[in-house]
Computed example of a mutant assay.
Amino acid sequence: MALTADPSAELRRNRWIMFVLVAVVVGSLAALAAATGWEETWASLSALTSGQVAVLLALSLINYVLRGLRWFLYCRVVHVPVSLIQAFRHYFGGFAMTVTPGRLGELVRMRWINQETRFPYERAAPILLMDRAADLAAMGILLFLAFLLSAEVASASLLPVAAVSLVVALLLTRQSIAMAAITLFWRTVGRWPRLFARLRMAARTLGPFSHPYIVFPALAAGLLGWFCEGLALQYLLIWLGAEIDIWPAVGIFALAMITGGATGAPGGLGGAEAAMVGLLSLQGIPLEISVPATVIIRLTTLWFAIAIGVGVFPIATHFANKGQRLRET
């Protein structure tokens, strides 16, 4: 099962997609800033101190570390023979591929695992599925908590999104449902038996992930990690002069991230920013604050992750190639 023939080439091929989307997003946000007056927007941006930016980056880093620990936990579930350092290297390096459509480029993590350990793709693939599902479940729970604990957020939009997120996460990770879906698809298509055999093998590995001693730590890591990102949004808005409680901020951040992810655009570009500005406006926060807040929070979350990934990517590739060469000699 070939995943990414050349990760570096894949990264280069998808840069143009990122540049186009970034140009559209920057242009749209600039238009909003111009509509409110550049002076107000710039005053909001320049009001932040370096210490405050450091706090925002630290909260994002807590999220990444907790999710990296969850990745290592999932690797242990399927007995991938990697150390904690290797797991973090693979996980953080994969952030560089966030710019690919639907973040499919993050499959490079599977390639690195295979190159370093010869662990089969089909046995490691459920880790990626579970990682996505755990994030979706954590977002759904945070939205549900925001619905319960905040009277300020547009609650009517939170509850259905929370419910759908939890249902989708459950459907993606249930072994019986996955096996039934693969079998039904195989009977419908009736071709590529080797591919479907590998898919069924991958689906069989989902069972151990449903044990409580795996589910609860994984959910806790996602909940705390993404809560830190919502907390960062609250701090940022307060520093920019807008009063907002923690749960409305968490709900807005989670809903914006799910909205962006649903578009399939790299990193949710466009969708997440539009949703965040719109949701903040519904809270009565003026554009001269909501626009720079959206710009800053995306820089300290999405683009901070990509920057880390770009830095770790060549290191992860080096060790993966080195591991492959050692096995071939």
Rank of each mutant, 00 (worst) to 15 (best):
Leu172Asp: 09
Ala154Trp: 10
Ile246Arg: 09
Leu195Phe: 12
Arg200Tyr: 08
Val168Met: 08
Gln234Cys: 07
Arg194His: 13
Leu255Ala: 06
Ile252Pro: 03
Ala154Tyr: 12
Leu148Pro: 05
Ser210Glu: 12
Gly261Gln: 04
Ser165Ala: 14
Gly251Leu: 01
Ala232Leu: 04
Leu255Gln: 07
Gly260Tyr: 11
Ala151Asp: 14
Ala218Glu: 07
Ser150Cys: 02
Trp247Pro: 01
Ser150Glu: 03
Gly190Thr: 00
Arg187Pro: 08
Ala232Val: 00
Gly241Cys: 00
Leu172Tyr: 01
Gln175Arg: 15
Met257Cys: 10
Glu152Ser: 12
Pro217Met: 04
Val164Pro: 14
Arg200Lys: 14
Phe209His: 04
Arg174Thr: 15
Ala154Ile: 09
Val167His: 13
Trp226Thr: 00
Leu233Thr: 03
Ser157Arg: 11
Ile258Thr: 03
Ile177Asp: 12
Gly225Tyr: 06
Leu170Gly: 12
Ile177Met: 15
Thr205His: 11
Met179Ala: 13
Thr183Tyr: 14
Leu159Arg: 05
Thr259Phe: 02
Ser165Thr: 04
Ser210Asn: 12
Ala162Leu: 04
Arg200Cys: 10
Leu170Val: 10
Gly260Trp: 10
Tyr235Gln: 11
Ala181Val: 07
Met201Ile: 13
Ala163Val: 04
Arg187Asp: 13
Leu206Phe: 01
Leu171Arg: 10
Trp247Met: 02
Ala154His: 11
Val167Asn: 11
Gly230Cys: 04
Pro248Met: 00
Ala180Tyr: 11
Thr188Val: 15
Ala203Pro: 05
Ile238Cys: 12
Ala180Asp: 09
Cys228Asp: 08
Phe216Gln: 08
Ala162Asn: 08
Ala178Phe: 10
Gly260Pro: 00
Ser155Cys: 10
Ile246Cys: 09
Gln175Ile: 12
Leu240Ile: 02
Arg194Lys: 13
Tyr213Ser: 14
Gln234Ser: 06
Trp226Glu: 08
Thr259Arg: 01
Ser157Cys: 08
Ile182Cys: 07
Phe227Glu: 01
Leu231Asn: 08
Thr188His: 10
Leu240Tyr: 02
Ser165Gly: 07
Leu170Arg: 12
Ala242Pro: 03
Pro193Phe: 00
Leu231Gln: 05
Ile182His: 06
Trp186His: 15
Leu231Thr: 02
Gly222Val: 00
Val215Pro: 01
Arg187Glu: 14
Met257Ala: 14
Gly241Thr: 01
Phe227Gly: 04
Leu236Gln: 01
Gln234Trp: 02
Ser210Pro: 09
Arg194Gly: 11
Phe209Arg: 07
Pro212Gln: 10
